[in-house]
Design a protein around this nucleic acid. Structure first.
Lengths: 248, 248
DNA sequence: GGTCAACGGATTTTCGAAAATCGTCTTGCG
DNA sequence: CGCAAGACGATTTTCGAAAATCCGTTGACC
């Protein structure tokens, strides 16, 4: 069993898709950055077909933009789309949370508590050491929010939620890249969890809304403070290509 | 200006994508039908690449399913996924409607009224003549529902809504294919519109919920009455490949 | 008779080259 | 000098063939 890669299903296309998506979400590929096929071909070691197919799928998900005969770009960011995204997340997560509380059984409760425990531990580690563990933390954070809504029993809503979460995580990664320290939101997560476990739908949704709203405001603020995003590590992107416009 | 095709943006991929999506939504390609690349190549007159790219995008949208090394199929249907879809539509359309009522101005009102007028006229034509105009009607029906939420001012929610609408329309097309006469729901649409124009959010959302719920029930019933779906016009699909299972 | 491995056909997946397209620069003309 | 037409370079888009994979089947061996 060659356990070498994190997520290599089988086909090259699947692997490339996962890698590019991860790189975009983690802002290893910056917003608005041009995605030349030749460059991607070198970077991911694949032919044109798998890469183009992966990019098409990401275009459908909204993580990359495609212009006719002009190629692909990482989706741009703006204050408008940030708040649009976060507002939608509030609603969608609210729905998923409501249904999850309605349907969730003991397993759901147990998984949720376990996920919170892992998250809180990783949050402490994250605060003590430098920002090298943010990958680990992001994983636990994602797992916790997934556990919250895991019992909602609606593949449609869950798929939508997952997609919005990806996009939100990208904004958070961008905020961290701009030297903004991550905020300590363990207490917020605990409040959501406790309300959910108490089967208090209204309180849980309100707490979730607050959580997302605060994240949105924090991200918006930290991006405003760093209007010029020219030289970021590990990318030969020109200023023009990766400039982040908060205006439109 | 060669106005020959309905929707031919520019690239072959875009055209193929629109055609396949339309064919799936209209059930010209039946649920569960296998999509051999060779067959699609003949049917749409294109190479492998544009077709595969289009299918990848449709896979991301959820209209086709992709199995590793086993190719593509039109997404299957089931009672569970029908109700999952419709339940999600109720919620998403509710959100979009609420925001649209909050934000909509006079233009929104005017467009909505105009869309309803066209819809009601086409509904009468549709009842008088045989089912040859259902394509026209579907277009107006789609336009009306879009006009309802057009002012919601959230690209994210609108994109999600559009996708769910496509999937719902496919179920309705399937229902019509099973010789089930379309129901006369002009009154329902009028109720939604009037509540929206009166800025009565609660009543509008309730009417919308009722409308979707009734459509779901109607579709579910007409599909149950036609368990065997083997020989449908214009397709050389074997019974095994296109059988519609309402069980799972 | 039953089980397992290897073979063959069909299809997917991947590749790299050819064709088409766009933006830009240059050139020629008014 | 200004402007339009044409050509060049870079990149996308498309194509068909080659490689890889899967499934069903045959055949051999226990």
């Amino acid at each position: 069993m060659p356990a070498q890669q994190t997520a290599s299903d089988a086909t090259l296309q699947t692997r490339v898709l996962a890698q590019i998506r991860a790189d975009i979400v983690a802002c290893a590929l910056l917003p608005n950055q041009r995605l030349t096929l030749e460059t991607l071909r070198e970077r991911y070691g694949a032919g044109f077909s798998p890469i183009r197919e992966a990019l098409m799928q990401l275009a459908a998900e909204g993580l990359v933009q495609l212009e006719q005969n002009k190629g692909f770009r990482v989706a741009g960011v703006s204050r408008e789309s940030l708040y649009d995204l976060m507002q939608a997340r509030i609603e969608i997560d609210g729905i998923a949370l409501r249904w999850s509380i309605d349907n969730g059984g003991v397993d759901w409760e147990a998984d949720l508590i376990a996920a919170f425990h892992r998250l809180s531990r990783h949050s402490k580690l994250r605060r003590s050491r430098p920002g090298k563990l943010s990958g680990e933390w992001a994983k636990e954070h994602r797992a916790f929010h997934h556990a919250l809504v895991a019992a909602c029993n609606s593949p449609t809503i869950l798929a939508i939620r997952e997609n919005l979460f990806d996009k939100a995580e990208r904004y958070v990664a961008l905020s961290i890249l701009s030297k903004s320290p991550p905020r300590n939101d363990v207490a917020e997560h605990e409040q959501i969890m406790e309300a959910a476990l108490a089967r208090n739908v209204g309180r849980a949704i309100a707490a979730s809304r607050e959580h997302i709203q605060r994240t949105a405001d924090k991200v918006a603020k930290s991006l405003e403070n760093h209007f010029e995003f020219s030289k970021l590590p590990g990318s030969s992107v020109t200023a023009r290509e990766s400039r982040i416009s908060l205006a439109g």
